[in-house]
């Protein structure tokens, strides 16, 4: 395994505000790493430090084994071999498409390289157009071609698809990621959109308040979150209070064996890990709300002295219907915690 980009012990503060508090990352060639986190979690600062737009205060940044940034070392951005794409393309308005793409190129191959790149982003023939005449998606593709032109070792993408409308976003994103993989660039993609991160990332690094909560491939992160915050970052999850004793966990949704020491635990259950059946005994849950979302529907069910759970609604489920809820104990994630109420976290849903 080779490492293209390595970040170790990165700490950064603006005035009294600790933006980054010990960040460790690595990216392999041809890998797409997503930095996923809410705004203000320090994602963009990490990109700026990797690109060399700001000097490193504490920690190190190495690219292909060469130290680029550290407290005593600052290689200027123009000598790092790093490409950068912003949320709103940031194309130079006074230059044509060809001028933008060729901005970082020199020498005789320039023309051919520009034509080749535009061909690959599907904008052949747009050479002499000006940026303001292009659509948002086209601008973003030009920005990608511009960043790819000098063949960077590392590509940094700062929410590049967030400003595009929903329909175009997916297409532009898929094409862009395919192009990056084809070019063999190590890519760091910053986003606050969990679905986007899961769709394109080889690995996701979950960021919160300047720290990394967990780094893992999307499916692992979704199915084996480290704690309730990591679980909520990727989508809807029910956090049910439980108690471990004698190798078994006891919850409002039943008991099953776990390999954990005795004590209070969080039981993390995705909506699809819960099964809803017509009532056939106690305890009985009541359907309080149903939200239709096209391919699937969610339902919120409540019971006496229990906060509601979010579940997948099977076809035919009616409001106020009595049901029982069964947890899939093979998939439930049980993690130690301090006692809290049962709650349904709905952070990342939209």
């Amino acid at each position: 395994m080779t490492v293209r980009l390595a970040v170790t012990g990165l700490r950064h503060r603006y005035g009294a505000h600790q933006v980054l508090d010990g960040i460790d990352l690595f990216v392999e060639p041809v890998e797409v790493l997503c930095l996923l986190g809410p705004s203000g979690s320090g994602k963009t600062t990490i990109l700026r430090l990797i690109a060399g737009l700001e000097p490193v205060q504490e920690g190190t940044i190495t690219i292909d084994g060469r130290l680029m940034g550290g407290p005593a070392r600052h290689t200027p951005p123009e000598r790092r071999g790093v490409g950068l794409v912003f949320q709103d393309a940031a194309l130079f308005p006074h230059l044509t498409v060809a001028g933008n793409v060729g901005f970082g190129l020199r020498g005789g191959e320039r023309r051919a390289r520009i034509a080749d790149l535009l061909e690959r982003v599907g904008l052949a023939g747009f050479e002499s157009r000006y940026p303001h005449t292009l659509s948002g998606g086209q601008q973003q593709r030009v920005a990608l071609a511009r960043a790819l032109a000098p063949s960077p070792a590392v590509m940094l993408l700062d929410e590049p698809f967030a400003a595009l409308d929903a329909i175009r976003r997916e297409q532009v994103r898929e094409e862009a990621i395919a192009l990056l993989r084809e070019a063999g660039v190590a890519t760091v993609l910053v986003t606050h959109d969990a679905e986007e991160a899961m769709a394109v990332a080889d690995r996701i690094a979950l960021l919160d308040e300047g720290r990394i909560l967990q780094t893992a491939p999307p499916r692992d992160l979704y199915e084996l979150p480290r704690d309730r915050r990591a679980a909520a970052a990727l989508g809807k999850v029910n956090v049910v209070l439980g108690e471990v004793a004698d190798g078994r966990v006891r919850t409002a949704l039943g008991c099953w064996p776990v390999a954990l020491p005795a004590g209070p635990v969080d039981v993390l259950l995705r909506p699809e890990w819960l099964r809803v059946l017509p009532a056939d005994g106690e305890p009985s849950w009541r359907v309080a709300a149903i939200r239709f979302q096209g391919p699937i529907s969610y339902a919120w069910v409540t019971a006496d002295r229990q906060p509601s759970l979010i579940v997948l609604a099977p076809p035919g489920l009616r409001l106020d219907q009595r049901v029982s809820v069964i947890a899939d104990s093979t998939r439930a994630v049980v993690v130690p915690t301090r006692p809290r109420h049962v709650e349904a976290l709905d952070f990342a849903s939209r």
């Binding site: 700026r48 690109a51 060399g52 737009l53 200027p76 951005p77 123009e78 000598r79 790092r80 790093v82 490409g83 950068l84 912003f86 709103d88 940031a90 130079f92 308005p93 901005f103 970082g104 511009r146 960043a147 032109a149 000098p150 960077p152």
Partner: peptide, 17 residues
């Protein structure tokens, strides 16, 4: 104000001093 900081950043990473 029209010379947005992103332009500087883009130019720098494209190898322009």
């Amino acid at each position: 104000a029209t010379v947005r900081p992103e332009f500087d950043a883009a130019a720098r990473t494209l190898g322009i001093g």
